[in-house]
Simulated assay, not measured.
Amino acid sequence: MAENNDYRTVIREDEDGTRHIALVRRDPETEQLTDDQIITHLQEWRAKREQPDRERWPIPEPFGDWLKATKPGPIEPCPHCGSWSLRLAPVPDAPGEARVVCTMSECQASPFYRD
């Protein structure tokens, strides 16, 4: 188990009252940074990692029948995951509208992605 001296608690409160708290491991790099620098670096890192809200669809039952009822998508791999599973599928809440979707549940761009 780590000792309390192994970590540094960083706290910053913005003018709007938002409080940021981070726990960072003490090392030569983090010891040279101010609390504001650490919080700013964490916010930048988080902004880069955040994914836009993606549309999610319920998985059709049975999925095999749904696949047969859809049309093949473009003859190219999914730009997000590289699989060859693109289909032209009807949008569940928009009758008459169809969209190219990746059917891989592991693909974060797929409307069937499992979090």
Rank of each mutant, 00 (worst) to 15 (best):
A2Y: 15
A2N: 15
A2W: 15
E3V: 12
N4E: 15
N5W: 14
N5Y: 12
D6H: 15
Y7N: 13
R8A: 12
R8I: 10
I11S: 09
I11Y: 08
I11L: 15
I11M: 08
R12A: 14
E13V: 14
E13C: 09
D14E: 14
D14F: 09
E15K: 14
E15H: 13
D16N: 15
D16S: 11
G17N: 11
G17R: 14
T18L: 14
A22Q: 10
L23P: 07
L23S: 14
L23G: 05
V24P: 03
R25S: 10
R26G: 03
P28V: 07
P28T: 11
E29F: 07
E29V: 11
E31R: 08
Q32I: 07
Q32G: 04
L33I: 01
L33F: 02
L33C: 03
T34S: 15
Q37G: 01
I38E: 05
I38W: 00
I39K: 04
I39H: 00
T40G: 00
T40S: 04
L42K: 09
L42D: 05
Q43H: 00
Q43W: 02
E44V: 13
E44C: 12
A47V: 02
A47S: 11
E50I: 01
P52M: 00
P52C: 00
D53H: 06
E55L: 02
R56H: 09
W57P: 02
P58M: 01
P58C: 00
P60H: 03
P60E: 04
P60G: 03
P60N: 01
E61M: 03
P62K: 03
F63T: 05
W66R: 06
W66V: 07
K68E: 12
A69L: 06
A69V: 10
K71A: 11
P74E: 09
P74L: 05
P74T: 08
P74I: 09
I75C: 00
I75W: 02
E76S: 10
P77A: 08
P77H: 04
C78M: 02
P79R: 10
P79I: 04
P79M: 11
P79D: 12
H80F: 12
C81L: 09
C81Y: 01
G82P: 03
L86V: 05
R87A: 05
R87S: 05
L88E: 14
L88Y: 11
A89F: 09
A89Q: 01
P90Y: 05
P92D: 04
D93T: 09
P95R: 10
R99M: 12
R99N: 08
V100Y: 09
V101C: 11
C102D: 03
T103R: 10
S105I: 10
S105W: 13
C107W: 06
Q108K: 14
Q108N: 04
A109R: 11
A109V: 03
F112E: 05
Y113E: 04
Y113D: 06
R114M: 13
D115R: 08
D115M: 13
